[in-house]
Design a protein around this nucleic acid. Structure first.
Lengths: 201, 201
DNA sequence: CGAAACGTTGATCGTCATCAATGACGGTGG
DNA sequence: CCACCGTCATTGATGACGATCAACGTTTCG
């Protein structure tokens, strides 16, 4: 997806150190960002001080597009968790791409559709299953995508404190579902499937 | 949005009685539906028997578009909760509309973007605030949109049982936050704001 | 100079009390 | 029959407090 923005003088490449924010919740922005390299977290900071991470964005993914489409204030914070390279694309250029480049438009639609699916699926199982289930799914996701996340980020993804995260981890270890050290899941895909199924009673 | 599908022989208008399903989770479909009248609920049925409603769709809204864009199996069930009239638009026609009609395309993007925002916001507060908070927000939403939902649907929206729903309702009544009868919220907008703020500590 | 000792900091976890939410069972009333 | 609710026991998840430990840099002393 990132190839569509190259060779355009209005598009600027920017670097972000870990911890730097590409987008601040509530701000009005004039650019869409396309991530060339690195990992970012998208999170909403609630008024009660808690954060909720709803996704991690990596190479090739786009952000700030909701605001470009709907002209609203930023829904969430986008913060680099590794060093990040990104294109900053002005809204005008973004709109032009959407209008004039059917392939880009199609990719954008697909990305939005995927995001909706994933968000809905996650909201569903986080509501209807206990914490341990969500934690196992997160670790599986992490392994699949070769991510290595900080514990506080995993906790924020699950909507809990680091303390609760560690506690749940410990319980999974005591039941021999996880290694006694590290964050590996000590199970084959098949076994994991079965564990996840156990919750479905 | 519904005007874009008129006068096309491939587009068929269909009726659905309350309880009938426009779309079944897991199915592969060949049509996108545009709702002309009535209310539907979109819900995921988890393997443990619980349902999670993630939105209610009404007049002018579209559904089945995720599957049209991503070519996957259906994410969720779409079920009529009032009598529903809808256009069934074949995927080929839908794709043509997206490609050839910039206005339609723009509306589609906006609808997807709005849906993402709302889903994220809801996932966040349902994770980070207690049940009562989510219940109050649901009732506010219902009042704003002049909806009147069945209790079991409200419960499924909150991801809880009807029993728990009633229980939470009772607690709100005992604290004089709600009328002792009906589902009205016995507060001005301003008071409600304050109540919601109370949770933000 | 180098090594041992010290203090600081942050991450982790045991424990305990508490709150939030559920499930089950049975009763009541339309 | 179904919706609703009182009651009770239980589970799930949290917050607070304090102890421990490892990492790291700094001080101190031989």
């Amino acid at each position: 997806m990132e190839t569509y923005a190259v060779n355009n003088p209005a598009v600027v490449q920017k670097s972000f150190a870990p911890g730097a924010r590409l987008i601040r919740q509530g701000d009005t922005i004039r650019h869409v960002y396309m991530i060339l390299d690195g990992i970012t977290k998208c999170y909403i900071a609630e008024d009660n001080g808690k954060d909720y991470i709803f996704e991690f964005l990596g190479k090739g993914e786009i952000t700030g597009e909701l605001e470009a489409i709907n002209k609203g204030a930023c829904l969430c914070n986008i913060e680099a968790i590794t060093p990040v390279q990104a294109y900053a694309i002005p809204h005008s250029q973004f709109a032009a791409l959407v209008q004039n480049n059917p392939t880009f438009n199609q990719l954008l639609l697909q990305e939005l559709a995927t995001r909706i699916s994933q968000t809905c699926i996650r909201a569903s199982y986080q509501q209807l299953y206990p914490l341990e289930y969500a934690l196992l799914r997160l670790l599986t996701l992490e392994a699949d995508q070769h991510l290595l996340l900080a514990k506080r980020d995993m906790a924020a993804y699950l909507g809990i404190s680091v303390r609760s995260f560690n506690r749940t981890l410990k319980e999974l270890r005591e039941r021999n579902i996880m290694h006694t050290t590290g964050l590996h899941i000590d199970l084959t895909k098949q076994q994991l499937e079965n564990i996840l199924k156990r919750f479905e009673e």
